[in-house]
């Protein structure tokens, strides 16, 4: 296992994001859901969510509340139920321009970091843009590990490769399902910084159960809670991303979020 800090001379230094993001116009997305149920159990009913163009929307909630279902609907992993719709501001569809990042890195164990980043092009039968892939690996601080196999990388490094893969197609919409939750605190913190920088200008849905993460990364924060599940009014903390979690303003929001989250759970004792 390599350590996270030894991989490159300056992995976490801010740099020009324009170099890797080819400025596809930002697009807002909204989801209107009549009813989503599995095996006669209603998960969500009369539910609406909109993702403002070019901003990071965080969806917070306790486990099992249906956060991931929303993301899977947007990604097309679950078919859209009747009388429901996904609409984009510009009138085009969502599925051919959304990228997805999972809690697991989903790296191919037999392929190098570089090959993992360009897997999308390979799967589409296109010639991969290796220059762009190398540039992205440099952006996430892994230029020295571009030929390494995933099992020789640490958890944080693997998730950085996954982030590079997610950014490779330069999709204007990025769907992230608890992408950093399997990492240790310090690695997660650094990856959040990295994500805030690299996701600039993209329409992002970030699913998380960590209020701190939402406060650091979310332009807009929604809390999902209660039975039946409802969405809290949007919370828009001030300040540029990534925010400082220790600031007083965030402390205030933190207690508000915790209060909202607690709605879905009966008090203990």
């Amino acid at each position: 296992m390599n350590s996270d800090s030894s991989s490159s001379p300056s992995p976490w230094e801010p740099s020009a994001v324009g170099a890797v993001n080819q400025a596809a116009p930002a697009v807002g997305v909204s989801l209107q859901l009549d009813r989503l149920s599995f095996d006669d159990t209603i998960i969500l009913e009369d539910f609406g969510l909109s993702l403002p163009a070019g901003q990071i929307t965080c969806l917070l909630g306790p486990s099992g509340v249906g956060k991931s279902s929303i993301l899977k609907l947007l990604a097309g992993f679950i078919p859209l139920p009747a009388k429901s719709a996904i609409t984009c501001d510009d009138g085009h569809g969502i599925t051919n321009r959304a990228s997805y990042m999972d809690q697991q890195d989903l790296l191919l164990p037999w392929a190098s970091s570089l090959e993992n980043v360009v897997i999308g092009a390979r799967l589409r039968g296109e010639i991969p843009d290796l220059t762009r892939a190398r540039k992205l690996l440099t952006e996430v601080g892994l230029q020295a590990s571009s030929e390494a196999l995933p099992n020789t990388l640490s958890g944080g490094m693997r998730q950085r490769v996954a982030l590079a893969r997610t950014l490779m197609d330069d999709s204007p919409i990025v769907l992230m399902d608890e992408p950093f939750s399997a990492l240790d605190a310090i690695t997660r913190f650094r990856l959040q910084d990295l994500a805030a920088r690299l996701l600039k200008g993209k329409t992002v849905l970030l699913i998380t159960h960590d209020p701190m993460e939402a406060l650091r990364l979310g332009h807009v924060i929604h809390v999902m809670s209660g039975t039946p599940v409802s969405l809290s009014p949007p919370l828009r903390p001030e300040g540029a991303l990534p925010r400082d979690p220790a600031s007083d303003a965030l402390k205030h929001h933190y207690s508000e979020i915790m209060a909202n989250l607690a709605l879905s759970e009966p008090a203990y004792a």
């Binding site: 990604a75 992993f77 051919n96 959304a98 997805y100 989903l106 999308g120 799967l123 589409r124």
Partner: peptide, 24 residues
């Protein structure tokens, strides 16, 4: 999970279904 990701990655392509099937 991998099949889902692959399906999403293939959606932005314009290639035929047979070609996608082969690549998968």
């Amino acid at each position: 999970a991998w099949l889902n990701l692959a399906a999403l990655l293939q959606k932005s392509g314009s290639k035929s279904a047979v070609r996608n099937h082969y690549a998968l």
